[in-house]
Design a protein around this nucleic acid. Sequence first.
DNA 1: TCCTTTTCGTTGCGTACGCAACTATTATAT
DNA 2: ATATAATAGTTGCGTACGCAACGAAAAGGA
Lengths: 147, 147
Amino acid sequence: MRSVTKNIGVGWRCANLYRAAKFEKIGIGCYQYSYILQVCKAPGIAQEKLSKRMYIHKSNVARQLASLEEKGFITRKTDPEDRRSLLVYPTNKAIAVLPQIRAVLEEWESLLLEEFSEEEQKTLLSFSERLAARAAALAEKQQEEEE
Amino acid sequence: MRSVTKNIGVGWRCANLYRAAKFEKIGIGCYQYSYILQVCKAPGIAQEKLSKRMYIHKSNVARQLASLEEKGFITRKTDPEDRRSLLVYPTNKAIAVLPQIRAVLEEWESLLLEEFSEEEQKTLLSFSERLAARAAALAEKQQEEEE
DNA sequence: TCCTTTTCGTTGCGTACGCAACTATTATAT
DNA sequence: ATATAATAGTTGCGTACGCAACGAAAAGGA
C-alpha cells in the first residue's frame, strides 16, 4: 500500500506538529500563518479570492480572518465598488511578524529537504507543484460534478 | 514563496475534498478509512501502536475507534497480557468495505499521478517516502525537545 | 423596470485534530 | 514491600475545517 497520497498526509500532519509550537509563540494558530502571508502578498484582496487561492472553504476563511482581525493582524473593509466584498489588509502587526513566520517556514522546509541533493530538491519542488495543481484541478472538477 | 510544504498542504486538502464524498457513501468519515486499513492490516494491534504508526494523537485515535466501533467496523478488547491496552480487530463489515476503500484511494492516486510518466511516478513515490520519513523524524524530535 | 439568478460573506452544525489532565494498570527503585 | 515512574486509554477544551442555509448586494433577463 505504498502511496504518494498517504505520504502527503504524514508530511502534512508532521509539518503542523512542528510548526504549532513555533507559531504559538508568535501568537497565531498553527494554520493562520498562511492567511497572513497571502494578505501581505496581496493587500486588499477579497475574501472570496483568498478562499479560491488557498483551497479552503470560504466559511473558514471568514472565521480565520475574523479571528486575525480581533487579534489585530488584519483589517477588513467593504469594497466601495462591490459592497458584498470585504477587502482584507495587513496591519503593521502582521508586517512585523512576517519575518518570524517566514523563518519558521523556511526552517521547516530546509530541515525537511536537508537529506535531498540540490538536484533532487529541484525535482521535488517541481513535482510537488505539478501535484498540487493536479490535485486542485481534480477537487474542483469533483465539486462541479456533485450538483 | 515556492515551497514543497505548501504544495503538500494543497495536495492534502484537495485529496480530502475529493474523498469525502466517496467515503460518505460507504458510511465512514473522510479520515476514518485509514484506521480501517491499518486495523485490517494488523488485526489485534494496540491503540497506542496505531497512534504512533499513523502520527495521530492517541486521544484522536481513541475517539475515531470509538466511533468506528459504534458503527460496527471494529471491535476492541483489553489485552489479557496488559490490561491497560486495548486490542483492535476489524469486523466482517470492515473487511467487506475494504475493496471499496481501496478503490477510492487507488482512483485518487492514479488520477493524481496521471500526468506523470512511469519514470517520474517511481521517483515521486520514492521521494515522497523519504519526505514522510524525514517529516516524522523531525516532528518526533520536536516533541522530545518540548519538555 | 422588476423579477430572477448569481455572488460574497456569515452562522449553525458536524467532524477531525492536539494538548492537558485524569484514571487505571504495569514497571521500577529503594 | 511499598512508593514512585511510566504507560494506555479517555475526556474536556480549544482550534481548524467543510457543508448547507441564510441575508445582502449585484448582475442579468423579460
